[in-house]
Amino acid sequence: MQLELRHLEAVRRIAEAGSLGRAAARLGVSQPALSAQLRRIERVTGGELFVRSRYGVEPTPLGEYVLSAARRVLGEMDALTAGTRAAAPHPTLRLGCILLVLVDRLFGHLEEQLPGHEIDLGTEHSAASLTRMLGAGQYDAILYGELADHEVPLPEGVAARTLIAKEPACVRLSAAHPLARQEQIELADLAGETWTALTDDGDGGPEAMADACRRAGFTPTLRYRIDDRRVRWELIAAGRAISMCQPTSPPVEGTVLRPLVGDPLFGRIRLAWNRAAVSEHQAGRLYRAAGRAYLASIPDHTFYRAWWEARPELHPVLD
């Protein structure tokens, strides 16, 4: 194995975080995976780079040497990236998104806000994957969600701005479900249901859902974790599971989307960008494009339109 930039970044993050657990969270990986990666790096460098102490982990003399070189190399790569992008007249903007509902409407607004720019739009299933790829330079900016009080850790050199500060979570269930006839559903009435969620959103969703259900008096049964949203919708349409969803989720055949009484769970949408690749001016235009795409989806949902119009303090400032 040869050392790569991602290995140097891992060493730097461990040193800065002071513990493998915190470094793993910031990198968007599990602690066992980061520990295994560190062992592989140490085999290449020929010795231990960190020792455990009562305060966390501290670099060994060899670790200090590798860390110094890592910071120098990574700093030069950041400068190279920023310089080459600045020299390009219209660099390709690499935008990553979780499969948020606004993505379908985003292209036209991006073309309006960033004329002449080539847009490379990719979708991922996890906020953790998005932030990791943003930190590795695979994306220049990302759109992602967070649930309840969870904050997605962001890489260094990244700025962020909240696009939608609060949106209520809804529930998607089979159109044949007995509760589908109700305009609103009490979360407590969903006790005993089987839930499905993405494999790893990285947005705090499963934890926030479990907390909301416990406050409603029950522990949810989360049986299915599925990356493929089409498979999730088919599972729900068949009546085998239900799922939390955004209030602007598009219609899915065989299912219905219903708001929850009292809004027991909220999410938010954020934009983050690499300051070395995206200027403040470009970030502002990205923000406006995403905001307008989101607002364009609201009229399609009667119950959410009324909720949204009653809360002007939550509306993004797009002018």
Rank of each mutant, 00 (worst) to 15 (best):
residue 19 S to K: 07
residue 103 V to Q: 01
residue 22 R to Y: 02
residue 74 L to C: 03
residue 5 L to W: 08
residue 94 R to H: 00
residue 83 G to I: 00
residue 103 V to S: 10
residue 46 G to V: 03
residue 41 I to G: 09
residue 112 E to H: 08
residue 73 V to D: 02
residue 3 L to C: 08
residue 34 L to M: 06
residue 2 Q to H: 11
residue 77 M to S: 09
residue 101 V to P: 14
residue 65 Y to S: 13
residue 38 L to W: 05
residue 51 V to D: 11
residue 53 S to P: 01
residue 5 L to Q: 13
residue 84 T to W: 11
residue 26 R to N: 05
residue 32 P to N: 01
residue 8 L to Y: 02
residue 109 H to L: 10
residue 99 L to V: 04
residue 40 R to D: 04
residue 68 S to Y: 05
residue 48 E to Q: 14
residue 43 R to V: 05
residue 13 R to F: 03
residue 52 R to W: 08
residue 93 L to N: 08
residue 43 R to M: 07
residue 30 S to M: 02
residue 113 Q to H: 05
residue 20 L to E: 09
residue 40 R to E: 13
residue 69 A to L: 14
residue 25 A to V: 05
residue 83 G to K: 12
residue 17 A to C: 07
residue 11 V to C: 10
residue 54 R to P: 02
residue 76 E to R: 14
residue 107 F to D: 15
residue 60 T to Q: 02
residue 54 R to F: 05
residue 103 V to K: 11
residue 52 R to D: 04
residue 76 E to A: 15
residue 83 G to Y: 06
residue 23 A to R: 12
residue 20 L to A: 03
residue 86 A to H: 10
residue 18 G to K: 13
residue 60 T to V: 08
residue 57 V to A: 04
residue 88 A to H: 15
residue 40 R to P: 05
residue 83 G to M: 04
residue 27 L to N: 06
residue 102 L to R: 07
residue 24 A to L: 06
residue 8 L to N: 02
residue 74 L to N: 02
residue 45 T to K: 06
residue 33 A to W: 00
residue 74 L to R: 06
residue 44 V to H: 01
residue 79 A to R: 15
residue 110 L to P: 02
residue 49 L to R: 03
residue 14 I to P: 12
residue 67 L to D: 11
residue 30 S to R: 00
residue 10 A to Q: 07
residue 1 M to E: 10
residue 21 G to A: 10
residue 58 E to W: 09
residue 63 G to D: 04
residue 114 L to F: 09
residue 55 Y to P: 00
residue 2 Q to F: 08
residue 85 R to L: 10
residue 50 F to D: 01
residue 19 S to T: 06
residue 89 P to S: 04
residue 42 E to D: 03
residue 55 Y to N: 10
